[in-house]
Design a protein around this nucleic acid. Structure first.
Lengths: 185, 185
DNA sequence: CGACTCAGCTAATATCGTTAGCCATAGAGC
DNA sequence: GCTCTATGGCTAACGATATTAGCTGAGTCG
């Protein structure tokens, strides 16, 4: 039996690809093992369990998403930053639906999530939002983006109105919302 | 073997309660059967499969949600209607997380979803939004609510800022967004 | 060259969904 | 009240999956 040269990183990466292809909840150790040309129990030499594998994907993907958001907003501010942030967020979620779903199942400590929050905070600072107001606005922004992308990639938008145009509308609407964010409540 | 008096409706209702308690993806025929004091294969006399059972929950729950939204917005319009709509949406999602998750896995034709859309359309008409603009605004509204409630019930909001206050901020922000919805794009 | 580590294997178990076929009960018809 | 039938609930069985317990051979280090 020649060795397959597996490592935790290889297993996680393979699993992430499968999650992207088949869906987060279709991810199975059997599929990962087959993809790697290995028997299922062999995977346990590299990951503790299916749950641990999922957490691994979660951590890596949250980092990837944070990278994408940071890269998209470097050197810009205000409405332009919001627009690019939203675009990058949606692009990641659509290109990697399985990985994106993974980012929503956070482990207790996830450095990627913290970095994403930092990027968003920086963007919001451009609207003069800080402290509790920034927390609320960040949650609103995240909710809108998470909701839209989730609904889009699960086929939740039935009507044949262009989804791209609806997303552009959402982004413009979010700019309006942030510009006029209700103060002093 | 005394009869248990099952019907499709009873099975679906029981399953919905289990989904609310244990989570949508923890829903299992074994749990439903045990709850009903019956063996697993007996359920197949009333539902076609686990998938069909899930679809059943989905249809019923979408109807319940539509009812709640319609009831909350009857006789009001404008900002007040948006506020009540949002509140009822979140209340349903929090009180019935499993059922709510079910509403996001739509069957092909779901009368509840259509009724929900009608309620939202009526509310948006109060802001002069119709046609494509109403579609975009409805998607934005739905995205924000879906995102917020999903993140909330999955524990996605880490920071200890009050979630109630953040939701109030989101609702106010949505009112701002709808009032200033970008026209003529 | 020898011993040790460990990656991948087979075997086995538990849980689930699903199907096939049995049998007793509830209710219809007389 | 009696019979007959439709059917609800059952047991038995299979395939898929996750997980654990050992085995064995391949690299590696002295």
């Amino acid at each position: 039996m020649p060795r397959a040269g597996l490592t935790p990183a290889v297993v996680i990466e393979t699993a992430a690809r499968i999650a992207d292809r088949d869906g987060w909840d279709q991810l199975t150790l059997a599929a990962v093992a087959e993809q790697l040309g290995v028997r299922v129990p062999s995977l346990y030499k590299h990951v503790e369990s299916l749950d641990a594998l999922r957490r691994g994907i979660s951590v890596v993907s949250a980092g990837d998403l944070a990278d994408a958001l940071a890269e998209a907003t470097v050197g810009v501010a205000g409405d332009e930053a919001v627009t690019r942030l939203c675009g990058a967020y949606r692009a990641y979620a659509l290109a990697h639906p399985g990985r994106y779903a993974a980012t929503q199942h956070p482990g207790s400590d996830n450095p990627g999530a913290a970095r994403t929050l930092a990027v968003v905070d920086a963007v919001l600072a451009g609207y003069g939002l800080t402290g509790d107001e920034a927390v609320d606005a960040a949650r609103a922004l995240r909710s809108a983006l998470h909701g839209f992308t989730t609904l889009e990639s699960s086929g939740g938008f039935g009507i044949p109105r262009s989804i791209d145009r609806s997303f552009a509308g959402l982004v413009d609407g979010l700019v309006v919302m942030l510009s006029g964010w209700p103060r002093g409540r």
